[in-house]
Design a protein around this nucleic acid. Structure first.
Lengths: 69, 69
DNA sequence: ATTAAATGTACAAGGTTTTTTACATTATTA
DNA sequence: TAATAATGTAAAAAACCTTGTACATTTAAT
C-alpha cells in the first residue's frame, strides 16, 4: 500500500475514458495509469497535476490523504 | 527546472518556521526541504501533502502548475 | 567583530516511479 | 461463439526522489 489513495478510476469512468486514452493525455504509458489506479505506487507530483487537469479536478480532490508515509 | 513551482518558502516564512523545523514536521531531511524550495526537484506526492498540511494549505495552493514535464 | 543559526551545495548510496516489451485475463461487441 | 478492446501483471532498465555526511556561505544575535 502507498501513502495516497486516489479516485482516478472513478472519475475516468465518468468521462468514459480508457486507461490508454488518459495515458496519452498525460504523456505516460498505459501501465503507469494502471499501476496508479491499482495503488501500486503514487504518481509523481507533476503527473498528479496532469491527471487532475485531464479529469477536470484538483490534486486535492483526486488524491485523498492517508495516514502512512 | 522542474515541472511544478511552489510557494513553500513564502508560506514557511509566514509561519516563522526554519527549513529544519518543517523538515521535522514532514519527517524528511532539511536538504530535501531546501532542494524543493530551490526547485532542484519536485517532492513526492506524499511529501507534497505533508507539506501542505504543515503549512495549513492545499497541494493545489502550494504548487502551481507549470508547462513542462 | 565574533559567534551561532540558518541556508546553500555536493556527492554517493538507496529507494521509488516510469518505461518498454510482452503476455494473460476479463469485458464488450459482432 | 468468436473476435476485439480493455485491463491486469511481470521483470529489467532508466530516471527521479531522498538520505547522510560534510562543508561553505549568508543572516541574525551578542
Amino acid at each position: 500500500m502507498i501513502g495516497v489513495q486516489n479516485r482516478i478510476q472513478e472519475l475516468r469512468k465518468v468521462k468514459k475514458l480508457t486507461q490508454d486514452e488518459i495515458a496519452k493525455l498525460c504523456n505516460v504509458s498505459r501501465q503507469t495509469i494502471n499501476a496508479i489506479e491499482n495503488n501500486k505506487y503514487d504518481p509523481s507530483l507533476s503527473l498528479a497535476f496532469d491527471l487532475a487537469k485531464s479529469l477536470e479536478t484538483t490534486v486535492d480532490e483526486l488524491f485523498n490523504e492517508r495516514k502512512t508515509r
